[in-house]
Amino acid sequence: MDAQVEKNNIKHVKKDRHLTPWLFVAPHLIIFAIFFLIPVIFGIYISFTNWDLMGSPKFIGLANYKELLFDNSSVFYEQLRTGLKNTFLFVVISVPFCIIVPLLMALALNVKPKLGKFFQALFYLPSLFAISAVVIIWNLMFNVAYGPINNIFHLKTVWTGTQPYAWIAIVVVTIWWTIGGNMIIYQAALNGISKDYYEAAEIDGATPTQQFFKITLPSIRSQILYTVVMTTIAQFNIYGQPLMLTNGGPDSSTSVLLMYIQQNAFGSGQSIAGIASAMAIILGICIMIVSAIQFVFLRDNSR
């Protein structure tokens, strides 16, 4: 091979080196831009307009936000308050369960009891189901006349129609449906803790409780932080459970914000997409603030 060609080749390869990484990431970045980035930017823009999904959006500045946040005579102001209050309430009740229950499951599975593999599969199983299938099953579980719960415990509770049972039903269904993922993450994390730590602790006479707080918890700190943040985000997006179990009732007490957003933008009447978009942005900001607080708090706490 003559030297000139060799040199050209190297040059060529070098140039290639700059380009190839981009070829690898391009497919994702293109899809990401079209179906995530642009919609987000467009969504923020819509929230400053009076768009009705039909005509072209007209810019109206901060009017939507002003109405949502300060105009207490507006029906949308009320929707936002009710929706946010109910969404927050759900997050506050459900997130601790969605962390603690799977953590206890993972701890129990970690001592390798009999049938461990079976238990793991069983607890994960519901997260494979579609929410509409889950609700079909649970609606019948909670049925006043035909449901096993009322019949086995001889109750007459109207689970999905009266409080606090409506919330209990929604939270129970959520736990049953979603904890599988977190359980697997904790299991993996617990697996990774070296046995030496525990042996050393045992020699020092540490009780199981002390071991849990001094060794186990710190070792899986990052996984806990990760699951707390991700679970919180997921629960803020609650929609299917109240829609199909309670239809937001009784007296709008389980009407979550996403239900209002969906109905305003895509309901049976004329679309009010502009203000619905502003509601979505406000929900988005709430989620980000809460995530950030959790992040800072859990991080500092562990130092």
Binding site: N247, G248, G249, P250, D251, S252, S255, Q263, G267, S268, G269, Q270
Partner: peptide, 14 residues
């Protein structure tokens, strides 16, 4: 009618 329908179905039961 669409707005009325959504509202009736949501509140009349209460």
């Amino acid at each position: 009618n669409g707005f009325v329908a959504d509202s009736l179905d949501k509140h009349v039961g209460d």
